[in-house]
Amino acid sequence: MFSPTQIGRDSAAALGLQAVEEPRLQPADDGKWNGLTLDSVPMDELEEWRRNPVFIGHGGESVLQLIRRTGTWLESSPVGVDLVVVTHAEIIRAAVAAISGNLDDYWSGPHCRLRTFEPHTVFHSSD
Rank of each mutant, 00 (worst) to 15 (best):
M1G: 09
F2S: 02
P4V: 00
T5A: 14
Q6W: 05
S11V: 08
S11F: 13
A12W: 08
G16F: 12
Q18I: 09
E21N: 06
E22T: 02
P23D: 01
P23K: 09
R24L: 15
A28Q: 11
A28T: 11
W33T: 02
N34K: 06
L36R: 10
L36S: 03
T37I: 14
D44S: 13
E47L: 12
E48C: 12
E48T: 15
R51G: 09
V54W: 10
I56K: 08
G57T: 00
G59T: 05
G59N: 08
G60Q: 04
E61Y: 01
S62H: 05
S62K: 07
Q65H: 11
R68Y: 08
R68D: 10
T72H: 02
W73E: 04
L74I: 14
E75S: 14
E75A: 10
S77F: 01
S77H: 02
G80D: 06
V81D: 10
D82E: 11
V85D: 09
V86Y: 00
T87D: 08
H88E: 10
A89N: 06
A95I: 04
I99L: 09
S100H: 09
G101C: 02
G101F: 05
L103K: 07
D104F: 07
D105F: 11
Y106W: 07
C112W: 08
C112D: 10
R113I: 11
L114D: 07
E118Q: 13
H120Y: 14
T121C: 08
V122Q: 12
F123G: 10
